[in-house]
Design a protein around this nucleic acid. Structure first.
Length: 148
DNA sequence: AATTGCACCAACCGCACAAGA
DNA sequence: TTCTTGTGCGGTTGGTGCAAT
């Protein structure tokens, strides 16, 4: 069977959901060996965990300030243990947390690189910095000073 | 109107680890 | 004991849409 890669089609999702309904979320690699889907076990598992599993928050649902706070706090405690951090956030997956964090890191890196905007200048419609982020930024700044 | 920069998201890859042959 | 296979995790990339230029 020719292996498929890339985005999942609705029909593939249906097959995967049906497989999990019958067999549970395990034996991912037998989905391919049984000829049900031309996808690797890894790909099937990832699709299930991140998109198809029940009780997930719908994609496009932004992190709330509370969720943000939790991630920032837990990342400081555990490091980049996204799967672990995700267990504290109902409906979020490790991928969600990871994506949230890396977007945030890029944004913070850019803010640190550029001079502070004047009071009158617009924020270009970008996500504003929340107060707890400002606090965290100060920590990063101090760390940078120590490191450099 | 076209281009650019950014945020967000989905899915891949490589590595590590555990279980079983 | 070593090798193989399946699974889970973290890092990363590539695509899309939108707002600003």
């Amino acid at each position: 069977m020719v292996m498929r890669k890339g985005p999942w089609m609705a029909e593939e999702d249906e097959i995967l959901i049906e497989y999990v309904r019958k067999h549970g979320p395990r034996d991912w690699s037998s989905i391919r060996s049984k000829g049900l889907l031309p996808r690797t076990g890894k790909s099937c598992r990832l699709r299930w965990v991140n998109k198809l599993k029940p009780d997930l928050k719908t994609s496009g649902c932004k992190f709330s300030p509370e969720e943000e706070r939790i991630v920032i706090d837990l990342q400081a405690r555990f490091g980049n243990k996204w799967a672990r951090i995700a267990t504290y956030l109902p409906g979020r997956t490790d991928n969600d947390v990871k994506n949230f964090w890396s977007t945030r890191q890029k944004r913070l890196a850019r803010i640190l690189r550029t001079p502070l905007p004047s009071r009158s200048s617009k924020n270009h419609g970008k996500t504003p910095i929340s107060s707890h982020e400002v606090a965290h930024l100060e920590v990063i700044n101090q760390t940078d000073c120590i490191e450099s």
